[in-house]
Design a protein around this nucleic acid. Sequence first.
DNA 1: TTATAATGATACATTAGTTGTGTCATTTGT
DNA 2: ACAAATGACACAACTAATGTATCATTATAA
Lengths: 133, 133
Amino acid sequence: MKLITRDTDYAIRALNYIVCNEGRTVSITEMVRELKTPKPFLRKILQLLGINGILKSYKGKNGGFMLAREPDKIFLLDLMKIFQGQFKISECIFKKDTCPNQQYCLLRTELESIEKMVLEKISAITLKSLKKN
Amino acid sequence: MKLITRDTDYAIRALNYIVCNEGRTVSITEMVRELKTPKPFLRKILQLLGINGILKSYKGKNGGFMLAREPDKIFLLDLMKIFQGQFKISECIFKKDTCPNQQYCLLRTELESIEKMVLEKISAITLKSLKKN
DNA sequence: TTATAATGATACATTAGTTGTGTCATTTGT
DNA sequence: ACAAATGACACAACTAATGTATCATTATAA
Ligand code: FES
Ligand code: FES
């Protein structure tokens, strides 16, 4: 019953650190020092953020990462999609196959309604809106 | 990102079937026929429902299960607690240990707010309210 | 121009949670 | 006594989450 997994969380922390150091590249080595996350894991995460157009990456000495978009254009939902797949909490069971129980399913309507509600709320959250003042 | 696991779902289906046959004991053998769930798995689930006071069980020939409370006193939240543990979606990371990141955590407030919202909505759901008319 | 510090790509390993199965004991009605 | 049910509980398989490791490539600085 976890809405946010660890990679998404690490991603947010890393992005936040990058925001706080805008204007220069930030390396993984530096972030590991600061965020105390396992280095190879963080590497994988940042690479994915690069591939998905959240970060720009620079190879070579003094390389590192910078934001590829403004913080108010980076949505929590984007990150969740990258690391956890499409947001969905209403799939009772039988993910792929069309559920044989569907027409009798007592829960589906309720879950869909909850999902909609959460989605609405969560859609508003961006890296910028998360930032502490 | 699953709000309801399979055992909770099976539990609901089984309970619903029992409700539809109130006044007599319903055996696992019968429910398996009807619900097409794996028998040993359903047994485990029903046993847990018994232990947790949702069902009364009767051993021996012609034995089986009956509701231990009225359908409007059986909350979805009860079932989720039995099969999935205490409802909580705001624990970012580090379940047990007090989170070292807590004071800097950008997400916690947001998640707690979402959790509260969902909890409110989900608290209203009972076996009775789920029943199709 | 070479050593070094960075990311790219990608495969593998570990752990925890979900989803089951199987076995023997006990109870109860016929 | 037998058969049909649950009780207790250990074990197994599968999947998802979390984390590691390795080699290749690129860019800077000495
Ligand atoms: S169990 Fe498939 S739609 Fe509910
Ligand atoms: S990461 Fe621990 S409170 Fe948010």
